[in-house]
């Protein structure tokens, strides 16, 4: 096995592990309509990355701290201060990025590749990143198996779930926390600018063909792994940036899924033709 094949196989493992995490957390993002929140969180972690680089820590720890802070401030501002959620997200989004750029510019002899954080690079994933993704996948899978119905019912009808005594506020916070952790780990693959697409596109495509939340999660993970592998292989073969290639493949995949769903609908209703009803 030559060096290049070794890098490819290593990246392939990252593609599979990140696909599983993206599929499951992406289902939370799509069904709970958290895409804007996730986008804001992904961008705001640059503040943590910048501060960590400035203080000579591992940037990943800075990203985790910023993501957790984002969730806590959002929950507090929304629930306690009754602030508008979209305004809080937009403010934290911009503030995080501004702080990140400020800290990175203040770092003496700064050499970290900013572009790899913004747009990701699956080819420079470390063994530590792989371990973290593997553990996240295990925790997510275990939690979904154990709490499948809790997740289903809190996501479908939060008020009714609260009436039945489910801890809806705790679960809402845990959803956000899991999404935050997944976003930080996935930024190594596709970058903080593109990560929201990796969460939203496979899950949205899966939702077109799923009757149940559990089947949506499985199909979303399958789509995410598939898009990652195709994107990675294309990037490797054509010497393209991996993060951007994966997202373009995911977008094309979502378009194809919509087209197939359209064809299936037409087949089911043969009485309606493109020129109108018979």
């Amino acid at each position: 096995m030559n060096h290049l094949t070794g890098i490819y196989l290593f990246s392939l493992t990252a593609a599979i592990l990140s696909g599983v995490a993206a599929g499951i957390t992406g289902t939370f993002v799509v069904t709970r309509r958290l895409a804007v929140m996730s986008g804001g969180l992904a961008h705001a972690v640059l503040g943590g990355i910048g501060l960590a680089v400035f203080l000579s820590f591992d940037p990943m720890w800075g990203a985790f701290a910023a993501a957790l802070l984002f969730v806590l401030v959002l929950v507090f501002a929304k629930n306690r201060m009754k602030e508008r959620e979209d305004t809080v997200i937009a403010s934290l989004w911009s503030l995080g990025m501004a702080l990140g750029i400020l800290f990175l510019s203040l770092t003496p002899g700064y050499t970290v590749d900013l572009i790899s954080y913004l747009f990701g690079n699956i080819l420079i994933v470390t063994p530590g990143n792989l371990w973290a993704l593997g553990i996240l996948d295990l925790i997510l899978t275990g939690a979904v198996l154990l709490f499948r119905r809790h997740i289903l019912y809190v996501s479908f009808d939060e008020e009714y779930a609260a009436m039945r005594g489910l801890p809806v506020n705790l679960m809402a916070f845990l959803f956000l926390a899991v999404i935050a952790v997944a976003i930080v780990l996935l930024t190594r693959i596709v970058g903080l600018v593109l990560v929201i697409a990796l969460l939203a596109l496979p899950a949205s495509a899966a939702n077109l063909f799923s009757k149940r939340l559990s089947s949506m999660m499985i199909l979303a993970a399958f789509f995410a792994v598939f898009f990652n592998i195709i994107g990675l292989t294309l990037a490797f073969a054509l010497n393209l940036p991996s993060g951007a290639t994966i997202i373009i493949v995911a977008s094309a995949g979502y378009g194809a899924a919509r087209w197939i769903k359209g064809l299936m609908k037409k087949r089911k209703s043969p009485g309606i033709t493109s020129s109108g009803a018979r």
Partner: peptide, 9 residues
């Protein structure tokens, strides 16, 4: 008031 796209039987 329900999400029209939510996957549940």
């Amino acid at each position: 008031g329900f999400d029209p796209d939510f996957p549940i039987t």
